[in-house]
Design a protein around this nucleic acid. Structure first.
Length: 559
DNA sequence: GAAACTCGCGCCCTCTGCTGGGCTACC
DNA sequence: AGGTAGCCCAGCAGAGGGCGCGAGTTTC
């Protein structure tokens, strides 16, 4: 509930234009619309259905749905109930209007279930102050309508004559609104008609503020649950009015064949007992006002708790630590978290247990995979609001965390903390690999190290230099290092050994006397040799061919 | 009716873990 | 010189702990 300040100038509640005027002026005044009973009194044929009725009125220009924008994308609408002919009462009970855009107004009404008619029309733009007001709840059934999700309705004023007389902002809501009247009715049992305007419900107005959800931009949806009945119905006494409203709820069971439920007319609260509903209705009475922020509370205790948040007073001190809290409940919870470790909420699917039910609820989403919080800019959806909020930083590019040393910015506090630790701290602890001598700065990187080097592979990996095989890369790499300095090329004639085969070949020639170029002479003599022995066709070199490798030698040698 | 207790939601925080780009040493 | 692999690092999401606070419920 917002601050109670409310000021509604009387001119906001534009008087309803009479049908004759409307007919005379036609389209001149679009902000004024005729009443249904006026239409009927003028001899207009009554449409047979609610949808048809409203559509007919709209098409004829007799009924206007005027959207006015007070600030930003908030839509301020004023609504007025009107008495209907008996044949319409059963048609127009709870309805919802879906205004796709003002050029093509669509009006739909839910199936009528109760006795309350609710023909509505919209009037002039309200003053800026009307953003404040009490929450106007929609019936649970209506809230299930997808178009209504994400909408908030604020009951701002409901009594025309009071609104005209009472323009003072402070406390005007509780004094003027039906909420107060209900309370008064419970106490004084005064009929609305008596305590209200001279014309009863005809003089009552409802002003609603509707706020479209993010995914409903450009659309408006209004839910009208229970409006006062016109002179066709006998208005009950206030106390009875409450009961009547309650009983009207009795007539609207949530589902057929289920237990009767009672629903608050002012919010979505439902219960199974009248006493509970009456008790609940006290929650709409907020007589205790904080002098600091003007918030109102039902009881002195709630007000005192609230004031403690301003003053910093924390009367409930923990006996085991220095913490202190405003309420005893907070202290109990703190003690469960920090001292007793009592966790009453246990997960049925794992061993998780939590201090709070909401934590268990959040935890269960990790089992179900439920991600109710959808990012509007990408496909990401999170399991709680905080993660979505944190995720949105990736779209905004905002990096709210700054390193106090190098002033680098980071998206998450943990990232910055790690940065400071790694970049600006001495003696940074390193993580020892449990399988080898590796020391790695980050635990996550150690994990990558273990995964890459110490993971068992079903298929054996063979050494490039020998037949040895391994199932673990680390073992293979270590083995291959043994080949690194290994003088595996050994001379068969002496103890000579070397790392490279070409060196062994060169060495062997020291035994054989072979001179590869040299068998044909030094490189610089090669040309001479070629000319002498190959270009001179008369010259025929006698070659002694090696029986093993086929190489030729100018003389017999064993190599 | 007030106080105590309980509940629910929101907010913020930390710890954790994965990922991919940049850098560098080694082959 | 180029390819490859490992390390460093920031980005980012998952999970859960802890508290603030208002409202509902129970108790007296």
């Amino acid at each position: 509930m917002e601050a109670p300040g409310l000021s509604v100038p009387s001119e906001h509640f534009t008087s309803i234009k009479e049908l004759t005027e409307t007919l005379e002026k036609g389209q001149e005044e679009v902000d004024r619309v005729p009443r249904v009973h006026d239409l009927q009194s003028a001899g207009e044929p009554a449409p047979i259905g609610s949808h048809e009725l409203l559509q007919a009125l709209l098409l004829e220009g007799r009924l206007e749905l005027v959207e006015t924008t007070a600030e930003g994308d908030k839509h301020i609408l004023t609504l007025q109930p009107a008495p209907l002919a008996p044949e319409h009462l059963e048609l127009l009970n709870t309805g919802w209007l879906d205004i796709q855009h003002m050029q093509e107004v669509q009006v739909e009404l839910q199936e009528a279930e109760g006795p309350f008619p609710a023909l509505l029309w919209l009037e002039e733009e309200p003053p800026p102050s009307v953003q404040q007001g009490a929450v106007f709840g929609v019936q649970e059934e209506l809230s299930l309508v997808p178009e209504l999700e994400g909408m908030k309705f604020h009951l701002l004023e409901q009594s025309l004559e009071v609104a005209k007389e009472n323009l003072e902002p402070a406390g005007s809501l509780s004094e003027n609104s039906e909420l107060t009247k209900l309370e008064k009715g419970q106490e004084e049992h005064q009929p609305v008609a008596e305590g209200g305007g001279p014309q009863g419900v005809e003089e009552q107005f409802i002003l609603l503020e509707s706020r479209a959800g993010e995914d409903a931009r450009g659309e408006l949806a209004l839910a009208i649950s229970t409006l006062n009945v016109g002179e066709q119905r006998e208005e009950p006494a206030l106390g009875q009015a409450n009961n009547e409203r309650t009983s009207s709820i009795k007539n609207q069971p949530k589902t057929k064949g289920t237990e009767q439920t009672f629903q608050c007319n002012l919010c979505a609260f439902t219960c199974s007992r009248v006493s509970s509903l009456n008790h609940h209705m006290r929650s709409h009475k907020t007589p205790h006002t904080c002098h600091v922020c003007l918030k109102t509370f039902r009881t002195v205790t709630l007000l005192q708790n609230h004031i403690n948040t301003h003053t910093g007073t924390r009367p409930h001190k923990c006996m085991d630590c220095d913490m202190a809290f405003v309420t005893s409940g907070e202290l109990v919870r703190h003690r469960r978290y920090k001292h007793t470790h009592e966790k009453p909420f246990k997960c049925s699917m794992c061993k998780y247990a939590s201090v709070e039910a909401s934590k268990l609820k959040r935890h269960i989403r990790s089992h179900t995979g439920e991600r109710p919080f959808q990012c509007l800019l990408c496909s990401y959806a999170s399991r709680d609001t905080y993660k979505l909020k944190r995720h949105m930083l990736t779209h905004s590019g905002e990096k709210p965390y700054e390193c106090h040393i190098c002033h680098a910015h980071f998206t998450q506090s943990g990232t910055m903390k790690m940065h400071v630790l790694q970049k600006h701290s001495k003696n940074v602890p390193k993580h020892q690999c449990p399988h080898c001598d590796a020391l790695i700065a980050r635990k996550s990187d150690l994990r990558v190290h273990v995964r890459n080097l110490h993971t068992y592979h079903a298929t054996e990996m063979q050494c490039r230099r020998c037949p040895a095989t391994f199932h673990e890369r680390y073992a293979l790499i270590q083995h291959q290092k043994t080949h690194k300095d290994e003088k595996r090329f050994k001379c068969p004639r002496c103890s000579y050994a070397c790392k490279q085969e070409r060196n062994l070949a060169a060495h062997i020639r020291t035994h054989t006397g072979e001179k590869p170029h040299k068998h044909l002479g030094q490189r610089r003599n090669l040309e001479v040799h070629r000319k002498k022995y190959h270009e001179d066709s008369d010259f025929n070199l006698t070659l002694h061919e090696c029986p093993t490798c086929g190489r030729g030698f100018s003389r017999w040698v064993s190599h």
